[in-house]
Computed example of a mutant assay.
Amino acid sequence: MDESDGEALAAREWRLIREERWPGPMNMALDEIAAETAAAGGPRTLRVYRWEPSTLSLGYRQDPDTVDWGYCAAEGITVTRRQTGGGGIYHDSHGDISYTIAAPADELPGDLVESYRRLCTPILDAFDRLDVPAAFAETGRPALHDPACYLRELHPAHDVVVPGDDGPRKVSGNAQHRRTDAVVQHGSLTYAVRPERHLAAFADPSVDAATFRERVTGIEDHADVTRTAAVSTVEEALAEWADAAEGSWTEDELARARERANEKYGSDAWTRRRPGDR
C-alpha cells in the first residue's frame, strides 16, 4: 500500500473490535451487520474473533453432503455457511484466529486481485511482526479434497503460505463478499494445526493427518508466541493499517445480528441447502 492509500484510510472513520468469542452463526451475522453499518455511513469495521464453540464454516455453494454431520454433532462442532465461496474451514476455538474488514464498496478497488492485495496488507504485516515468513502463494499445488478449503489448489490472489523445501504450506485463507454497497473480507489465520479434527468434520476426506500437515502450517510452528500474543499482533497490525480507534458494537447492531443469526446463519434452510438452491 502506498502513502496515498494510507492517507485515504486514515481520513475515514475506522473502529477496531478486539477479539470476541461468538458462535459460528453470530460471527457470520456480525460480518453482515458490519457491512450494512459501513454502507449506511457508519464506521468501517476491523474485527478479530474466536469461534466458540469450534465451527465448520461451509462455502456459499458447498454441498451439505460433504459434511460429517454425526461427527460434528458428537464433538460439539457448530456448522454454518458463509456468504463467501470456497471450501469448508474447520475453525478450531484455540487453533484459529479470524478477522474481518468491512468498508463501503466505492472506497476499495474494483479489481478483485488489487482489492485482496490492499486488504491483506495488515495480515501479511502481522505475520512479519510474528517472524512467520508468510507470503501470497505463487505456485499452485494440486487439490487433495475440494470440499476442504485448506486442501484445495492454492490461489495466488488470496491464499497465504509459508514456503518450504517440500513446497508451500497454507497458513491463511481469505475471501471476499462484494455487495453493491460494501465489501466484506474475512479470513482465517491458523495458529495451531488440528489435522485430525479438521479432517473428521468432512465426510470421506480420503486424506490422512500426515498429508494434511504437509499442506497446512500454523503460527506456532514458526514462532515461539502464545495465542494471546499472536491475536494482539493481528489486532495492532489492523489498527495501524487503518489508523483505527478501538470500538465496539452498538446495542442495535448486536440485536440485529442476533436476529440474523437465528433466522439465517443458524437455520437448516441456510446451512443445509443444496447447490443451486436460493
Rank of each mutant, 00 (worst) to 15 (best):
T180K: 15
D243C: 06
T190H: 00
V193A: 07
A245L: 03
T190L: 12
S188K: 06
A257G: 15
H198W: 13
H186I: 09
A257V: 09
L254C: 10
T180E: 14
Q176A: 06
R260F: 08
D252C: 01
E253R: 04
V183T: 13
S206F: 08
E196K: 13
Q185N: 10
R260P: 03
R227F: 01
A210E: 15
V207N: 12
A239W: 09
A237T: 11
A261W: 00
S206Y: 08
G218H: 03
S248H: 05
H222Q: 12
G247W: 02
F202W: 08
V207P: 10
T226H: 08
A244F: 03
G247A: 03
V231K: 00
H177F: 15
V207C: 13
E253S: 10
G187K: 12
S248V: 04
R194C: 10
A201I: 00
A261S: 02
T211I: 08
L199Y: 02
A230Q: 00
D221K: 01
T217Q: 03
R227Q: 01
R179D: 13
A245V: 05
G218Q: 07
E235C: 09
V231T: 02
E253V: 04
A175H: 07
A209H: 05
T211E: 15
E236T: 15
N174Q: 01
F212P: 05
D181S: 11
L199V: 04
D224I: 04
W249K: 02
E196N: 13
A175Y: 05
S232G: 09
P205H: 12
A230M: 01
R197F: 06
T228G: 03
V207E: 13
